[in-house]
């Protein structure tokens, strides 16, 4: 699942470890999310969305939606 996680994290000047601490996962998990090696659970996706104050689909592409969000 493609995501804009790396860009959003870089915009805030956070390291992977910083983001990991904020969302309560390991640095490896953040790396796996950014390199498309892991699709987050719904709970984790919501936590990430809350940290960046964005909707989930503004961060993670929804491969099932044919039109844009909203």
């Amino acid at each position: 699942m493609k995501s804009r996680l790396r860009v959003l994290r870089a915009e805030r000047g956070w390291s992977q470890a910083d983001l990991a601490e904020r969302i309560g996962v390991s640095r490896q998990a953040v790396n796996a999310l950014e390199t498309d090696k892991h699709d987050p659970s719904l709970g984790l996706a919501f936590r990430i969305a809350a940290v960046f104050d964005r909707a989930v689909e503004e961060i993670f592409d929804n491969p099932h939606r044919t039109e844009g969000p909203g």
Partner: peptide
Amino acid sequence: RSDEYVRA
């Protein structure tokens, strides 16, 4: 005690 990625 691990997160979902490590667990998987």
